[in-house]
């Protein structure tokens, strides 16, 4: 199993991460070395094994449906690169072709 250049482009799109030509070459090489090493995982028989995504058997943690104070608008916006009239500003979105 190895990552191709095409796949690297696809991954760059999926991850929303621009990769320079050098990045692509380097990452393709490095990730293939890593994945080759990781392939030893495939030799483990896990047919009857459940996946663990939570290590502790905690269940049903809830909060009550109570309104708590929101943060002031200035704090909400204080780290935004661009704001306008209480909104976050983003480059224009064009949805349809």
């Amino acid at each position: 199993m190895s990552i191709t250049n095409e796949e690297m482009d696809h991954l760059s799109d999926l991850a929303m991460l621009k990769l320079s030509a050098e990045d692509k070459d380097l990452f393709t090489k490095q990730l293939n070395t890593i994945l080759e090493y990781f392939d030893e995982l495939q030799e483990v028989d896990t047919s009857d094994i459940e996946a663990t995504s939570h290590v502790l058997p905690i269940r049903n943690v809830f909060r009550e449906d109570k309104v708590e104070e929101s943060i002031p608008l200035c704090e909400c916006l204080q780290n935004a690169p661009q704001i306008k009239n209480g909104f976050f500003v983003v480059p224009k979105i064009i949805d349809t072709e």
Partner: peptide
């Protein structure tokens, strides 16, 4: 519901932008 799914912010409709956030 009165509050959001994962936090205590109000779900009330029609408030000033970004005032019901945390």
């Amino acid at each position: 519901t009165e509050s959001k799914l994962f936090c205590g912010c109000s779900t009330k409709f029609g408030s000033e932008p970004n005032t019901q956030t945390c």
